[in-house]
Simulated scan of single mutants.
Amino acid sequence: MIYHGDALEYIGETPDILSRIIEGQASVLQDCGKIFDRDGIRGGISEVILTGSGSSYNAAVGASVFAQKLLGIRVTPVYPVTVMEEMDVVSDKALVIGISQQGTSTAVIRALDAAGEKGFCTVAVTGEYETEITRHGEAVLYVECGYEDAGATTKGYTATVLTLFLFFIMAAEKTGRITGMQKAEYISRLRRVTGNMPGILEESFGWCKRTADKLVNSRDLMLITGSSMRASLLEGCLKFSETCRFPVRGYEAEEFMHGIYNAVTEDTDFLYLFPADGYEKMRMEKLYGYYREKGYRHYAVNLPETACSEGQCANVLCCHFINDPDFSVLEYMLPQQMLFVLASRARGIDLNLPRDPEFHKYMGSKIE
């Protein structure tokens, strides 16, 4: 499929889109709200299964930790094939949520059908009206971000994470896990995060442009972050690989230290995404300093100023993130998205032209 939109423009639209989704949440959540009035679900949900592929899976990861904390039950992001293979061990009051922004993922559709046949409550999440997936869930949750006519998902990913956050806040209120006042506080925090996004985009552009030019000949990019930012790590690896079209790896810092460091070569470039605080931040500072002393090329988002040595600050992006403990995944993706789009352009790649136009048709992985 050939696209015609501008991914960079879609990133710029993100703050307004997220703000509109928050303000229009009553309409967005109306269809899904009805499932909590059903006799079978009034007694509560035993677990939530979130399933999708690519950016949809990564969005599920981005929302799952918050959802689990809020609902007090297991919330598991899994790939569609895993849902189908492990259906017999899913508890009988499970809620299965299938995510496909374009609504064309055949694997997600099959997973929703399999869950429905087992009698589980199912919700289809998509950004497109009247697509095939909307006919395979008991309720539909629309990601109201508008059509993304580009070869890599940007605003759709962030809008999906936000929409899932809103869904789980609603679910927590309807099942008695939080009060109306607590819900209002969560929504207020989301507004604060989205309201800060225009400033992040403005702060990021110059650094992303300079860094993209430095990555023009990169052949081995390693993303490093902490477990609290796993969704951003997964989405970064996917999108840098997809848009810059060379293999990109990513690891949580402690996992990297247990063997992966042996795969570092003179060609390796590092991109660090520092969490706001905690043990992992300290460990990442030490790791950053180690490879800095060895002369490796490395770039960092949110590196503490105390760890930024003379001559290295040009490779560091210090954004004024809100660093909300639950919702920071929304803002941390913006510089990454801007960087992979600009890096792909610096490398002379047209994102809107697929490298292998026959792939999905041959594999049957998307409905054309």
Rank of each mutant, 00 (worst) to 15 (best):
E13W: 06
Y279W: 01
D213C: 06
E185S: 13
I367N: 12
L317P: 09
L201Y: 03
L353R: 13
F120N: 10
M363A: 14
V90Q: 00
R245T: 11
P198Q: 04
G289E: 05
N262V: 07
H4D: 01
L71T: 05
V341F: 05
P247E: 02
R110M: 12
I99V: 15
I21H: 01
A67L: 11
G348R: 05
H298T: 08
Y332C: 02
I367C: 13
A124T: 12
R191A: 12
R110F: 14
M338N: 02
Q182D: 14
T154I: 13
Y251P: 00
K93T: 01
V193N: 00
I45K: 03
F36C: 04
C32S: 13
Y157H: 11
G44N: 06
Y299Q: 01
A159S: 15
R42V: 15
T154K: 04
K118W: 08
R42P: 09
S46C: 00
S228V: 09
G40Y: 10
S204L: 07
A253Q: 01
Y10N: 11
H136I: 15
A94L: 04
G348A: 05
E266F: 03
T131Y: 07
L190W: 02
G295I: 12
S232Q: 03
L141D: 06
C145S: 14
A94V: 10
I367K: 12
D31I: 15
D149M: 11
R249S: 05
K239Y: 03
H360T: 06
Y288G: 02
Q102E: 13
F120V: 14
T122S: 01
E47L: 08
